[in-house]
Amino acid sequence: TYTYKLTDEEASRRAEDEWRNRGYDVRVRNNNGTWEVEVR
């Protein structure tokens, strides 16, 4: 499981799409203004 911490929502969406396209399960959540993109 990888977790990315990003401050930019758009960057988190791009990361989400990119990993999803590669067949990974992705979750995005906002934690106090930081976007966490979790990849498994």
Rank of each mutant, 00 (worst) to 15 (best):
T1P: 10
T1S: 12
T1L: 11
Y2D: 05
Y2K: 11
Y2H: 11
Y2S: 06
Y2E: 06
T3G: 03
T3S: 07
T3V: 14
T3L: 12
T3H: 07
T3C: 13
T3D: 04
Y4Q: 05
K5P: 06
K5A: 11
K5L: 14
K5S: 12
K5M: 13
L6V: 15
L6F: 15
T7Y: 15
T7M: 13
T7H: 13
T7A: 15
D8Q: 04
D8S: 14
D8T: 13
D8W: 04
D8R: 02
E9I: 07
E9D: 04
E10H: 08
A11S: 12
A11D: 09
A11E: 12
A11N: 06
A11R: 06
A11G: 06
A11K: 06
S12N: 02
S12E: 02
S12V: 15
S12H: 03
R13W: 06
R13H: 08
R13N: 07
R13G: 04
R13I: 07
R14M: 09
A15N: 03
A15I: 15
E16P: 03
E16R: 08
E16W: 09
E16D: 03
D17W: 14
D17K: 15
E18Q: 10
E18R: 10
W19K: 00
W19V: 01
W19Y: 06
N21K: 15
R22G: 05
G23H: 03
G23L: 00
G23W: 01
G23T: 00
Y24F: 12
Y24K: 02
D25M: 09
D25P: 04
D25V: 11
D25E: 14
V26Y: 00
V26C: 00
V26I: 04
V26Q: 01
V26N: 01
R27D: 11
R27W: 11
R27S: 15
R27L: 14
V28A: 04
R29D: 06
R29M: 11
N30H: 12
N30A: 08
N30M: 10
N31M: 08
N31K: 09
N32F: 06
G33N: 05
G33S: 03
T34E: 10
T34S: 10
W35F: 07
W35K: 00
W35G: 00
W35E: 01
W35Q: 01
E36I: 14
E36R: 02
E36A: 03
V37P: 00
V37F: 04
V37A: 02
V37G: 00
V37M: 05
V37L: 12
E38T: 13
E38A: 06
E38P: 00
E38S: 09
V39G: 00
V39H: 02
V39A: 01
R40D: 07
R40E: 07
R40S: 14
